[in-house]
Design a protein around this nucleic acid. Structure first.
Lengths: 236, 236
DNA sequence: GCAAAAGTGTTTTGCTTACACCCATGA
DNA sequence: TCATGGGTGTAAGCAAAACACTTTTGC
């Protein structure tokens, strides 16, 4: 290696896959691009990482700027990094993708950065997504797969719910994200049996119709133990 | 946002956590740095991503250059990206960390790049590692945690073994990586019950002492179903 | 009372555990 | 024959799946 050789520089961005369960569907937050490559195309929210700024920090900032969401109150985790040469026609850009999980928010999202942001159903094979800019389609697919997997053995499902939630709301998260039907009675016992997950708040919530449901809050556990497995993990 | 504003540039590296099971211990491949920041300090192998080079490609290349390993034959997966400002004193450097799993190789590793590379025991609380350069200590810890977790619900353990392996060798991987003792008899049945994992080759291997063992090869399954859980996933 | 959602009890089935026991080999 | 690791059988204990049944509300 030559002493005078200098390594190539790249631009660094973060892109956010923000998922929620809304209207009994898994939905992702997309923006419409207002700038040149892929102008007018749907894309994941995101942007350049500033100097003196960490990745998580940049993700939280973009979440606020582009989606009007408080990233500190959301589940936010790094997904993976995409840097295939040519993925951005302008320059070499590496993007660190983040997975964010949000409850169904009362305000549909009003970005302070003012580009149209909207929830779009995703992950349903019957409703294909619009083409996304760059390699965002791949990123989204990876994110949904990660979220589906993590429901099995972590308490991630609660991140889709508000601070207080009912067992039925939690179950609907699993059903919608996995696209399966679960037995509410067994689900109930199973979740109460998971150590450190659900803490009753003492409150109850009246559904539109039916018996009032006990409210729970997330306990300290991050792992769901025992896990709730999607049956038949091996393609038959 | 100003039209004339240009985003900051960063340097992009890949760093490799290469794990193996050797002498009944989990070991990691470390190099001694031959250049200035942290000269002489132990570090993870890695280097800059070239122009027109993808991340996986860079990881495979560094694996060959710095460790003399054929990355195409190893399990290689992206771990996560570290980009805390100041993590490299020279410049803003983002590093994409990779986790590589290797069988216990007959040749102890002879890097063509010729910096001293060596296997060092890791993950054993009784044998603390030397201080590592940059944030490599954190990266290593994250990698080991990832590997431990993935043994539960994937067939990653086989990546620690040669092409053909015995049930005892596979069990030793679990025991060493998790630092627990497993009942060989139940383990045997459990693994044979996992769909699509183990395919008998028809061959046998003579141990130094004892009954010959049947040899297996990895089947098509990537998921281990049903999983083999470390008991009590929740801190008691 | 009826519909609908919440929640409990019970049975059956299958997996995990613990451990007794047999097998095949080298010394 | 013994020590050693490989491998099978089996019974106890749990957890999961299936489902009958009760509770609590609004209409």
């Amino acid at each position: 290696m030559n002493e005078e050789w200098t390594p190539p520089t790249v631009l660094l961005t973060v892109d956010l896959v923000v998922l929620t369960v809304r209207d009994d569907r898994l939905q992702v937050l997309l923006i419409e691009r207002g700038e040149d490559p892929y102008l007018g195309t749907s894309a994941l929210p995101g942007g350049f990482v500033n100097e003196y700024e960490g990745l998580d920090e940049a993700a939280v900032r973009e979440l606020a700027e582009e989606a009007g969401l408080d990233g500190r109150r959301l589940h936010l985790e790094q997904l993976r990094t995409y840097a295939t040469p040519g993925r951005d026609p302008r320059a070499r850009v590496a993007t660190v993708a983040y997975l964010a999980i949000a409850p169904d928010l009362p305000v549909p999202v009003a970005g302070t950065d003012a580009r149209a942001a909207a929830w779009v159903p995703a992950g349903d094979p019957a409703t294909p997504l619009p083409e996304l800019a760059f390699d965002h389609g791949q990123i989204l697919a990876d994110a949904i797969e990660r979220a589906r997997g993590k429901l099995e053995y972590t308490t991630l499902a609660a991140a889709f719910c508000a601070d207080e939630f009912t067992m039925g709301e939690l179950r609907r998260v699993y059903e919608v994200v996995w696209g399966v039907a679960l037995d509410g009675r067994n689900f109930h016992r199973k979740m109460l049996g998971a150590k450190g997950f659900l803490v009753p708040t003492g409150g109850r919530r009246m559904p539109e119709v039916g018996r009032p449901a006990v409210l729970y809050r997330r306990g300290p556990a991050g792992e769901l133990y025992p896990p709730l497995l999607r049956s038949g993990g091996y393609p038959t």
